[in-house]
Nucleic acid binder design. Sequence first.
DNA 1: ATCACATGCTGAAGCGAATCAGCAACGATC
DNA 2: GATCGTTGCTGATTCGCTTCAGCATGTGAT
Lengths: 339, 339
Amino acid sequence: MRVRRRVTLLDVARAAGVSRTTASYVLNGRTEMRISADAHERVRRAADRLGYRPNRNALSLRTATSMTFGMVTDFVSSGQASSQMISGASLACLDSGHLLLIGETEGDPLVERRLIEEMIDRQVDGILYATLVSSQVQVPAPLAGCRTVLLNCRDRDGETASVMPDDFGGGRAAARVLLDAGHRDRVFVVGEEITPGGLSGAARLSGVRTELSAAGAEVADVVACEWAVVPAYESVSKWLSTGVRPTALVCLNDRVAMGTYQAIGEFGLDVPADVSVVSFDASELAGWLRPTLTSVEVPYAHLGGQAVHALMRPEPLRPGVRAVAMPVRRGGSVRPGVM
Amino acid sequence: MRVRRRVTLLDVARAAGVSRTTASYVLNGRTEMRISADAHERVRRAADRLGYRPNRNALSLRTATSMTFGMVTDFVSSGQASSQMISGASLACLDSGHLLLIGETEGDPLVERRLIEEMIDRQVDGILYATLVSSQVQVPAPLAGCRTVLLNCRDRDGETASVMPDDFGGGRAAARVLLDAGHRDRVFVVGEEITPGGLSGAARLSGVRTELSAAGAEVADVVACEWAVVPAYESVSKWLSTGVRPTALVCLNDRVAMGTYQAIGEFGLDVPADVSVVSFDASELAGWLRPTLTSVEVPYAHLGGQAVHALMRPEPLRPGVRAVAMPVRRGGSVRPGVM
DNA sequence: ATCACATGCTGAAGCGAATCAGCAACGATC
DNA sequence: GATCGTTGCTGATTCGCTTCAGCATGTGAT
């Protein structure tokens, strides 16, 4: 069987007995051009019958717009963050007929450069530059002159539009949960980063401190550890073996909370009877643990969606960070409130 | 500042003092056209100096190829599978200068249809049709006539090229691990699906059975439960409370294994001293649990890469399933082998 | 001097669409 | 009956690129 050529506008025009121009006007709903109802009808029918679909690349050549956005990420496969951002971005594109080009750099600046150039070569209408962990970045040179939104990151001078989670607000929310449950003393924070990789840890901690001190309480101490299950388990075990007995713990993410659970369990302490635990991320993990975790969600999908919406708006992007609220997801890890 | 127009081939040609044709031949390395070394040099310099980059969409118009693949998935945000497939596909695209368009359907056939059409409108050179859970699918109508590779799924008649994990082989590998550790009796399987959503469960179970019977052993019984932590915990708890005492468990995925761990722990049994556990997925979870899980990996990234490579090859796609091996990832959940 | 051939380039067409400018045909107006 | 305005279209150009066909010029053979 011969490969059948795609149906073009000319085919439709011929089938309808009109010129390409007329067909174009009809199919684009350009009413200012006075086309008879009859011609209108004939073109529509022909397009339908032939299954006409416009060639977006040809269109892009004329209109200098491709209805396509690019998304560059350092890591997509690790964890939920990237994939949820992709998901949110992809879904936000859908309504408006945009599509999303994606590229994973694995943190390699050369790959990053190549991907961005390839995207610009395809005339993308804008680029999402995303990082797995919330961080401060140097906007890559090839992005200069390209409509760009930073996603889960920001640049040093705040010159580029950026969408980030409000970790500070999230920290305050976490502290509020504990305060509402009557916790005022022996509230500890677990997960201060040894080698800070991102911005979220410090912001969350700062939020917790702010909210507690506004209520006249304070963070009793901070336990440092990597944001991973095993290191958290080890750090908390060691720490508990010094005899400290917390009544409430703020774990700076869910993996830290999981390690903390394991350590707490081994010391015969019960969550939430002996220790309340609040965490961040509200990942699947939060639902798997027993009791389920009360965790402050990072709305990654929403971030992705917001970033795409920013790209889609006609006006110029306004510089600076747009902070997205982090809602508290209630689990069973905080003792019931004291009235 | 005026928006500066992109540099076109004509700009380069003018700067080099040659025709567009000559510039094109030089930049595309078309040696059969006899260009003097001098002109060659001038064009190269001009292109470099002006920072020329070809407009891929214009190019696609001429060559009917876009150096872009599409990837349609039902769910990208849930779990690691999709994101790893995306990652593998994206990376495989990189070397050859391809880029990946992605779209998430959320299982909606209408959205699926729209996404596929949008991709075809952008002249993609091929489409990856992926599903989160390994399953049998009906290839969507708009894909007819489009170079398509099914990813983590297959069609009923095997008429479409497909890349899938070798779950049967994985099942055999899991059983082999237990056999090598001397397990022959009281080997149970946990996670037979109540409402089978995918193909992998049955294939894994069948692999386990095959390998065991080849060694003269057999599966003592199968515990049914959903593939999620809490249901697995509940099912295994109930099951253990009937007094059964397994010596080895094959959990059909890591989340089932996690729930199983919780149940086992509550019954005072030790992994691996009392019970060996082997699982599937080799997700992050496998490393978080204590002891770490021995788990048969589903090489999602590799699947994605393979699928892209299939799309890239010049020859026609050959129908049928390409099964990708699932390697065993050793953890500490299986008792040391008995010689 | 003529022809053949290689060398080194260029002009123009065409890919599929949008869109500006123009142009017949027709009725109404003065 | 000449002018005007409206209606309903179409031709030609353009976007950036590839590529076929052709065309000067120089060189060696006859």
